[in-house]
Design a binder for these strands. Structure first.
Length: 112
DNA sequence: ACGATGACGGCTC
DNA sequence: TGAGCCGCCATCG
């Protein structure tokens, strides 16, 4: 795939921020997008995560949508892996959603 | 070039 | 953080 230079740069930024998500915490695509100055392109963040497969250091399972819904679970090797990893970190998941999402939420705009 | 698609978000009810 | 609708924007057929 040939991506535009800016696009690749965007990818790198997304991975860089995602890699900083603390253990047992989660964030949203929009939060990352906002931190990168592309708040309107939250969708692109999700799309960027699609290529996170080549970046093992990126804990994609800690990135969910704004309501804590594990929308990206279908992109994992095993659909239950995302939930398993989060629960292993102490994050309670119920019906594909993060319980007390606000409590586990980690906003790069505020934290960084 | 056009329309559909999507790991989304914000507003409204 | 329920459900529904619309706006964003890069990518793809």
């Amino acid at each position: 795939m040939n991506y535009a230079p800016e696009t690749e740069n965007f990818f790198q930024k997304v991975y860089a921020v995602a890699a900083l998500i603390p253990y047992g915490r989660v964030t949203s695509y929009g939060a990352i997008a906002k931190y990168l100055g592309a708040a309107r392109s939250s969708r692109m963040v999700g799309w960027a995560m699609n290529g996170a497969s080549n970046h093992p250091e990126v804990p994609a399972h800690r990135v969910v949508n704004r309501v804590g819904l594990l929308t990206g679970k279908h992109h994992f090797p095993q659909t239950n892996l995302m939930q398993q990893l989060l629960e292993n970190e102490g994050v309670i998941i119920k019906d594909d959603k993060v319980v007390d999402f606000k409590k586990h939420f980690w906003d790069p705009v505020i934290e960084l």
